[in-house]
Design a protein around this nucleic acid. Structure first.
Lengths: 191, 191
DNA sequence: CAAAAAGATTGCTCTACCGCAATGTTTTAC
DNA sequence: GTAAAACATTGCGGTAGAGCAATCTTTTTG
């Protein structure tokens, strides 16, 4: 198992070297170039992906053809379409790399078997779901209640890496605005 | 334990009568009148609430004084500010009854102890978090990508109960629009 | 390194939704 | 059962952000 994943598991579960080694066999290292897809809309999600290096995003395309980005995962985060992974239904979202990326993939069935059988994996899954809950609670109130300038300032404060590493087009699709509006807001901020 | 909660646990975990009885002791029945609060902004959330009868909502008030409703829970749903319950930090949201409501409350510490100790409760918690994940994924794409008429039609299709039981003011605050706009959209739908 | 492609900026116009105000309707409370 | 309060509707005007087009800048690719 990649050392990044080991330290992630260790931090959350306190699991020892032996247990970590036993879990290692379930993960397969995979390399994806920038702008490639790990999952497309309509496909059933087959794996849970841990980002060892690089960056993934989850997004969907609405009927008008507009991309909406729901989640951006940098190093040391799991990223997958859990909705498809849990239900076994085709995904309504894409998983795309935004940089050359190394992921550690675990198959759907292996993952859920381990959630049942291995307390450490159960705990990691709980941690993922709890973190997702906390993040999305804030995100819903943000999308519902704040204007685009507030959302931009909040993202700048919370996730400055996003602005250093990703193009405005992606940031705009995360904030739920057009690249035009993002450009205008950035100009306003400089004044 | 209230029979509604028993059947909920049984459906998700398959637990037998004996186990259900053992878990029962941790839940306390509580009655709240319409428009009362179980939790206010700034308070630390102390319980997880199962709605046995009636209806709760989770909402926050933004700096402009506008209420935004994030979640509406009818019968047979757990509802709490998990963000506060998990982190132990003060809640940024309110829990309010929208009808005369009966809840079964379990204390924070009891709940998390049982999550660790009792596989049935672990499974129920996982189910709650997974359901929340699936619901909020759709909700984020909805708020980000769809206009208010689409959101209204979607809610009408998915949750018709909402329109039968709740005032337009609450529905508007759930959809992220003003009551004025909701009223106009309803008039448009009739044409 | 040069050509091409992709991304960023900005003026202009347009639209969806907001927000007040005035009026009508339903619900609540004594 | 009736008064008061809360809720709903609709006209009117205002605003945030969308979307097109033209231009400029950065990145990619051979």
């Amino acid at each position: 198992m990649h050392s990044t994943l080991k330290s992630y598991f260790h931090e959350i579960t306190g699991a020892g070297e032996e247990k970590l080694a036993a879990l290692a066999q379930y993960f397969v290292e995979k390399h994806v170039k920038k702008n490639e897809w790990l999952l497309r809309e309509g496909e059933v999600c087959k794996c849970n992906y841990f980002v060892a290096a690089g960056c993934l995003r989850l997004y969907s395309v609405n009927p008008a053809g507009i991309e909406n980005t729901r989640y951006i995962a940098f190093e040391k985060k799991f990223a997958t379409s859990f909705t498809s992974l849990i239900t076994g239904q085709p995904s309504m979202e894409y998983i795309q790399s935004l940089e050359d990326t190394t992921v550690l993939a675990i198959a759907r069935q292996d993952f859920f078997d381990l959630v049942e059988r291995e307390p450490a994996v159960n705990k990691v899954y709980r941690h993922i779901l709890e973190s997702a809950y906390i993040t999305t609670q804030k995100r819903i109130y943000d999308l519902q209640g704040a204007d685009s300038l507030h959302r931009l300032k909040w993202l700048l404060a919370q996730q400055p890496r996003v602005f250093e590493r990703l193009p405005g087009k992606i940031i705009a699709s995360y904030l739920g605005i057009t690249p035009y509006t993002l450009s205008r807001l950035k100009a306003d901020l400089k004044k």
